[in-house]
Simulated scan of single mutants.
Amino acid sequence: MSAAPDQADPPAQGRVLLTGADVSRAVTRIAHELLESNRGADDLVLLGIPTRGVPLARRLARRLAEVEGRAVPAGALDVTMYRDDLRRHPTRELLPTEVPPGGIDDKVVVLVDDVLYSGRTIRAALDALSDLGRPRAVRLAVLVDRGHRELPIRADHVGKNLPTSSAERVSVLLEELDGRDAVLITGGAPA
């Protein structure tokens, strides 16, 4: 599990920024944006970044299949060994990378994550992806973009832009892992 502030186990409470219905609408909107920008689901492969990017990728794949009438492959991309902060946080659980049948070569790969913050997780994902094959294009879909980028990385598809202070913590709760869908914010400006 990542040590980034948005990747640890989320708190059970905080100020609710997105309800379950809001999360559902955001996933649906991202699915439609993906279909529109790709002109359909041909050659799309969704790869979720653990932990919460994986169930989000699977949800997106289901929504895409509902619209397109056919399955859209989804898998998982563990980026642990590609992170640049392993010296500071050396103990991380390795999670499986699951590449759908057919691979990623010459496909449009959509990396899916819950929160985009510094951009370092996505940089690691791009490195991990290059070891798996050569996609035709790579896009990024995130449920929440909270700003504070440290690298020149930007999401192509965003469920919600949430400007935050760096002292705040954005937590995504998903039914598959947490028993409910919500986006919470905790913390605030230090006193």
Rank of each mutant, 00 (worst) to 15 (best):
E168P: 04
D9H: 10
A57T: 03
I185D: 05
T91H: 07
A155W: 00
S171R: 01
T186F: 03
V54D: 03
S118N: 07
E176A: 14
A155G: 00
D78I: 14
D178E: 11
E168M: 02
L143R: 05
D85G: 13
S171Q: 02
G75R: 12
A8S: 14
V108E: 09
E98V: 15
H32Y: 12
R25F: 11
I30G: 09
L184A: 09
G102K: 00
R15I: 15
T80Q: 09
L60W: 02
G147S: 03
R59A: 14
R29F: 05
R120D: 12
R136M: 00
L56N: 09
G48I: 10
P163K: 01
R139M: 06
D42Y: 10
H148C: 00
R154Q: 07
P190D: 01
D145I: 02
A65T: 10
H148M: 01
M81N: 12
R134H: 04
L18P: 13
R59L: 14
H32V: 15
D145S: 04
P50A: 05
R139Q: 11
M1A: 14
D145H: 03
G147A: 02
V110N: 03
Q7K: 15
E33T: 14
R62D: 15
A26H: 11
L94D: 09
D42F: 06
R134P: 00
A124T: 13
P135K: 02
V27C: 08
L111H: 07
G103P: 02
R83W: 04
E175M: 08
N161M: 00
H148I: 00
V158Y: 00
G179H: 13
A128W: 09
G179D: 11
L86E: 10
L34F: 07
L116R: 01
P10C: 12
P190M: 01
G119A: 07
G188H: 11
L35D: 07
L116W: 03
K160Q: 02
D114K: 06
V27F: 09
R59D: 14
K160C: 01
R62I: 08
L77T: 13
S118G: 13
R58Y: 05
L46C: 05
L111V: 07
A141H: 03
G53H: 05
R123K: 12
V183P: 06
R15P: 06
L94A: 08
Y82R: 12
V109A: 01
P10Q: 11
R62Q: 15
S24Q: 14
A74Q: 13
G179F: 10
Y82M: 13
D22L: 08
D106L: 04
R63Q: 13
A128T: 09
G187E: 07
R92G: 09
G119N: 10
A31L: 13
R29Y: 02
D85Q: 12
L60P: 04
G40L: 10
E150V: 02
L46D: 06
L44R: 12
K107H: 07
L60H: 03
A128D: 04
T91Y: 06
E66T: 07
T186Y: 04
L126T: 12
V79H: 07
L126D: 07
L77P: 08
L132E: 02
V108F: 05
S118A: 15
Q13K: 12
L177Y: 11
R70C: 08
A12I: 14
G159W: 00
L126N: 09
T28P: 05
D127K: 12
V72K: 10
L143C: 06
Q13T: 15
V99I: 15
R134A: 02
L94T: 14
M81L: 14
R134V: 03
P90Y: 03
D6V: 11
